[in-house]
């Protein structure tokens, strides 16, 4: 079974075994290693990506279920300025400034959850604590991440 997906705006096909978790396909076939493994049980959120505008644990999506899906991973967030400089997504920029990333292993998943929350705050009526509850971070105690998310929300708000 050949599976077609759009990953970070690019078309992509894979012949991976249909049961292979999307996580492994991203990391091994597509060499998008930004998305991380932390547990394989849907609990840690390190593998979080956005699939068809929904937040998912990519370790729990057998790749066959991602057929024709639109996938966004951490690699797709930053942009390049005309002068070649990297422009981070407001969530990434705020994490950088506020110390939201320490060891960095939870970070790609956490950032994707953060990006998704800013797009769809209505899906987490209890706010940040709920929006990020699927993403474990062992380094920060979450405080710096909350601060970063608040700053990112400010940045995204029209002045």
């Amino acid at each position: 079974m050949t599976i077609r997906m759009t990953i970070n705006g690019r078309d992509c096909t894979t012949d991976a075994n249909p049961m292979t978790p999307l996580l492994d396909v991203l990391r091994e076939s597509c060499r998008l290693t930004g998305t991380k493994y932390g547990c394989g049980e849907g609990e840690c959120g390190a593998c979080t990506v956005i699939m068809n505008d929904e937040l998912v644990m990519s370790c729990l999506v057998p790749v066959m279920q991602a057929e024709v899906a639109t996938i966004e991973t951490v690699e797709g967030l930053a942009r390049m300025a005309d002068d070649g400089a990297e422009i981070l997504h407001p969530v990434q920029q705020a994490f950088l400034e506020c110390g939201g990333a320490q060891c960095g292993i939870c970070t790609p998943g956490m950032v994707m959850a953060g990006v998704h929350h800013l797009r769809h705050p209505e899906l987490a009526p209890d706010g940040l604590a709920e929006a990020l509850e699927g993403n474990l971070c062992r380094c920060t105690g979450y405080s710096a991440i909350f601060r970063a998310m608040e700053r990112a929300a400010e940045a995204g708000r029209p002045a």
Binding site: M19, E41, M57, C59, L60, P62, M64
Partner: peptide, 26 residues
């Protein structure tokens, strides 16, 4: 059958799912 996979894939990933044919309902 596999619906959302949040149960089946955990078992699969952890080596706790005995080999069997699977059917994705998506």
């Amino acid at each position: 059958p596999i619906a959302g996979g949040t149960e089946v894939m955990v078992m699969f990933n952890e080596g706790l799912l005995a080999p069997c044919p699977v059917q994705s309902l998506h």
